[in-house]
Nucleic acid binder design. Structure first.
Lengths: 211, 211, 211, 211
DNA sequence: CATGAATGAGGGTTCATTCAT
DNA sequence: GATGAATGAACCCTCATTCAT
């Protein structure tokens, strides 16, 4: 037992340190997200992230072993928040007998909102060609997201083979990944219109899966 | 008698030279496409492209003034081929009264084939966050593609406003951009299945635009 | 107790850091001067400067943004020292009613000594054709030197038009610029003899301006 | 006997070739002079010289083994013309009993005219810090020029030791070298004024040598 | 001999990462 | 732990020089 994620354990040992460290990590991740969003992952420099975080480059490497590791941690960070999102969707009363439009709306609304609130997210997730360091970092999270979506889709595609459901999940995710940058880059009514289109796309696609 | 440029013995400048130059350019573009596809645009180095082409770094710069210029030329190269593709689609007899499925098939088949044949294409086109040098290189082609698609969609969405057609075109392109990497990365039946899904996505989406 | 910055214990930011930085800058400038003197400005490489300074190439760029910037800083460095020299000359009691020979001696002695002590000086200043980066770097200092000399000459050529004084200053500077490399390249009695010749040149020239 | 500079030998063997070769060499030297004058020796590229000459880079190396060799040949070229100049000065009737001003004028006028007519001259001669390749190229000519000047000065400084005359020659040359760029860069009356100043400098200097 | 494409060593510069303080 | 100066490999690009045609 390494004592890493004890659930009920109060503050023991060096609470101050761990706390500061955790704060520091979040500070860095926040900065990294901002820089990734601003410059793109490849063009983002670790020095720029440190500067954005108001810390020294050396401190960055106290918590992360390299640039890819920052992306990895950031991916984990987002994964946790998405898991929370998933929890909310799944706790919707009607999820098990919801209509398809309701289901899509239930997922899409929070998802778009999430992307707008976290511009760093798409900077590391919504890419079609990932550099080596980044792919490894986000791969586990991709899987996790895929599982969530597949699970959700399993509810409405209950008569399909698991591999078929998996594929539909893959496709649905990819559609969203493709559209989200368009949506977040747009503003005002155009953004709303594009969001509506994405909804339409997903509905159109999934409806055909039901027949 | 090489039987190559013996047509009429006119006073054409340096056919041999220009020919070699053109061949060289295509050699480089081919190499660049391979390296972009393998490493991604950002990670691709000009030295790696030169090595892939079996030439020296300096030779690259006889034809291209920098890395972005190579991307630009490659984009033009693809644009020309896509224009040819478009020509074929538009010359289909039934294009003006084709059914939606036929139209989608007419476009999608060649498009997927094109992407499979040219793995470098998606490396420079199917990105959501482009570095500055790349964006400038591909922007004109993006516009050209969008126009072609919008023109095609205008045929089936003849009662819609131009800006709506434009948006549908944008969305359709983005859907394809998102799905293509998935398709080209897959193999065998999975690839076929994903291609079918993309077809389904587009059909589902466009059908809803018709109502 | 290092006995260096223990003056009053004020809240000065990072004296150690800044000190090291300042030392480093001077180390680099010293190395640059040596390399410029040895290889000439154009042939001098930033890597050679770094090697001469015993540091890594990257460290240069922590302090200077490019090669021209090093030349610029070196020019400023020399300018400051020349300003000090000028101060000494001007504080000579008899400057306002000095004889021409005394005045020339008062300037020339320190100037030659300065050039001997700083071989990098002539490498960036005593050139007739400057590359672009270098010209920009030294231009301000050229102007400053010219002003100083013109001011001094104005004392002995009080009845001449300003533009004439300016021209005499230009010529005098150019004569020194031309002769200094000769002097510094020579050794022993030959150097002394050449210095005496320069003195003779200036005296002969300026005397004619007085008549 | 290598048959290189046969004085009276008419055109034998391959007159056409040698002629063309000689023309080519002069073409290149002319171009090199222009490029050296425009860009400076260091920044001048052999490709730029070839382009200026309207020939291929490869042809350049048929006649010159490297960049320094071009400078060397150009220096020889100028040396020959200066020798002709010297011949004219020496054939002046009164050279042996001319007054100092007349002598200076006799030399300076043609010299300034020569520099104005051949802007490439100062680009390779009027430098205080020469890159390795250039120094070797111009050194022999420097010596030759020095000898001519010393010879001329020997006429007016007949009672001085040879080494003293040599030094005066060195200084006089250096004064001219320093001033010429100033003069050629200036235009109109300012150029005339600076030329007059140079005359004054030389006269002032040499007069003091006579006493 | 002329050509000009090809070469490749090397230059200036950047930046992920380390380490003395 | 924190710092930020230092590192140095590697990048893009240039250009003197060569060589197949």
């Amino acid at each position: 037992m390494t004592g890493k994620d004890e659930v009920a354990g109060g503050a023991r040992a060096q609470p101050r340190r761990q706390l500061r460290g955790q704060q520091r990590i979040e500070l860095i991740l926040h900065a990294a997200a901002a820089v990734f969003a601003r410059d793109g992952y490849d063009s983002a420099t670790t020095n720029a992230i440190a500067a954005e975080a108001g810390i020294s480059p050396g401190s960055l490497y106290q918590f992360f072993k390299n640039k890819g590791d920052i992306a990895h941690a950031l991916a984990d960070h987002y994964a946790a928040q998405l898991t929370a999102l998933r929890g909310e969707v799944f706790t919707i009363d009607s999820v098990f007998d919801a209509s398809l439009p309701d289901l899509v709306d239930a997922v899409l609304g929070p998802l778009v909102a999430f992307n707008l609130a976290h511009p760093g997210f798409k900077a590391i997730f919504a890419r079609t060609d990932m550099p080596v360091g980044l792919r490894e970092a986000v791969a586990p999270i991709q899987v996790s997201i895929h599982q969530s979506v597949a699970q959700l889709l399993g509810l409405v595609l209950s008569d399909r083979q698991p591999d078929e459901v998996a594929r539909v999940a893959t496709v649905a995710i990819q559609l969203v990944r493709g559209m989200v940058p368009l949506i977040t880059d747009a503003t005002g009514t155009e953004r709303d219109a594009l969001t509506a289109e994405l909804r339409s796309v997903l509905l159109g696609y999934l409806r055909q899966q039901l027949t």
